[in-house]
Design a protein around this nucleic acid. Structure first.
Lengths: 116, 116
DNA sequence: ACAAGTATGCACCTTTTGGTAAGTATCAAA
DNA sequence: TTTGATACTTACCAAAAGGTGCATACTTGT
């Protein structure tokens, strides 16, 4: 069952989830408390953020540190594995930055037809 | 509306779809006829393959060539933009290949709990 | 005559994913 | 004392994504 058709396939299963790549890439800059993360990844709901963080944790990509304080204080950071994954994500980020205009144009067209 | 929060965000919208990264990466090797593509990307249904190819086409990532023969013969290849995207995908593929065992272990654990 | 391969289209349905709104415990500031 | 911040949890629901199966039109192989 846990067989992947190729390397890319394996990676895709780890980063599957609307916000995971963003979370991982953002955590590369610094460890972050839950709240900061939530403000950084704009548009996520609590439920989904927590859920994806848990999956990333159980997949060995992030570490959760609970300081057991009150009010609660928890932060998330990347494991070594997570950092290597974030590095592999960098080219995608650059590609998007370099072709953002082109991509935006194309998407604008698509949405035009959607609405009519 | 067509605004992205960052480069990564833009890229993710282009490669959104269960099979798109696989399709793109596979097409890097060679232009391919529809049938070959379908056999290569194991598990896709016709509906979804066609659908994602169309989106990739309208996003300027792939080109569809219809030879207007009978029986039908069509092939798909990457545009320059598509090739650059495929290159950006390479590190993800390598990451997956390098950590495949680790990833497989973790996923096996997860699935164990799922079933009980 | 019949099945198979070719690249799609379409209607329908299930699964997956994500979002919303509420609630929890504790402390500090207004 | 009410409000807000903190990091979550849960139940419920809507939307998106993907899958299944059938149909098409023509040709080649059996």
């Amino acid at each position: 069952m846990p067989g992947f058709s190729c390397g890319l396939d394996a990676t895709l299963k780890v980063i599957a989830g609307k916000w995971k790549p963003l979370i991982i890439y953002f955590l590369l800059e610094a460890p972050n408390r839950y709240g900061e993360l939530k403000r950084a990844v704009r548009g996520v709901s609590d439920k989904v953020l927590i859920q994806q963080l848990k999956e990333l944790e159980s997949d060995g990509i992030v570490v959760r540190t609970d300081y057991r304080e009150v009010p609660p204080r928890v932060d998330y950071s990347l494991t070594a594995l997570g950092r290597s994954l974030a590095d592999a994500l960098a080219p995608l980020s650059n590609w998007g930055a370099e072709h953002m205009e082109e991509v935006a144009r194309v998407f604008a067209e698509r949405d035009k037809w959607r609405r009519g």
